[in-house]
């Protein structure tokens, strides 16, 4: 996962600025104040971190700054929350039922996304929705452990697991 992410990383001023902004927002939320002394410490710390880790990724690295992308991000968030609750209830029902109706398997799926950050978010979303767990990523291929493996061939599994998240992430990251 790390190896495949490094290949597509591009160093640029813009990415550094985005990393700095997300760090500073995190700092302000953590402190909960806008007092001038905490702000100065935060700016200094964030500058240092941005300088030393300018090759690393942040969640905004490949984000397209277009209105469609923001709308897609909001839609993606709510779709994700819905999936999280629905699949949690499904797993809970499996755990409660006495005969434990599981049907596990590791399936292979393929993604259309090209940006490393989009791929990382897709993998994280797949992992967070219960029932599916990303085991390994190799370029565009994901190996996914599935508690109820209904479809074992690549096309059908891709449609069932990946397609819902992918259509939003494609607009956000490309």
């Amino acid at each position: 996962m790390i190896e495949s992410m490094k290949a597509g990383t591009m160093t640029s001023e813009r990415d550094s600025a985005k990393l700095f902004a997300s760090l500073l927002i995190f700092w302000i939320m953590l402190n909960g104040t806008l007092a001038i002394d905490t702000l100065i410490i935060g700016v200094l710390a964030c500058l240092a971190i941005t300088y030393f880790f300018r090759d690393s990724l942040s969640y905004l690295t490949d984000f397209k700054m277009t209105p469609q992308a923001f709308v897609a991000a909001i839609k993606y968030f709510f779709f994700f929350l819905k999936e999280l609750v629905v699949s949690n209830v499904r797993i809970a029902r499996i755990v409660i039922s006495p005969d434990l109706p599981i049907n596990p398997g590791i399936v292979k799926v393929r993604t259309k996304l090209t940006s490393p950050m989009g791929r990382l978010l897709l993998a994280n979303s797949i992992t967070l929705t219960p029932g599916t767990l990303t085991v390994e990523i190799e370029d565009e291929w994901y190996y996914i452990h599935w508690v109820t493996a209904d479809a074992t061939d690549i096309e059908a599994a891709t449609n069932k697991i990946v397609a819902g998240f992918e259509c939003h992430l494609e607009v956000m990251y490309g």
Binding site: L84, V85, S87, N88, I91, A92, I94, V95, L100, I102, P104, I106, L128, T129, P130, G131, L133, V135, H145, V147
Partner: peptide, 17 residues
Amino acid sequence: MPDIFNRIQAGTKATTL
């Protein structure tokens, strides 16, 4: 759950929600 992968699934996700 019977094996490690299923335990990861049932354990860590349900607790996250």
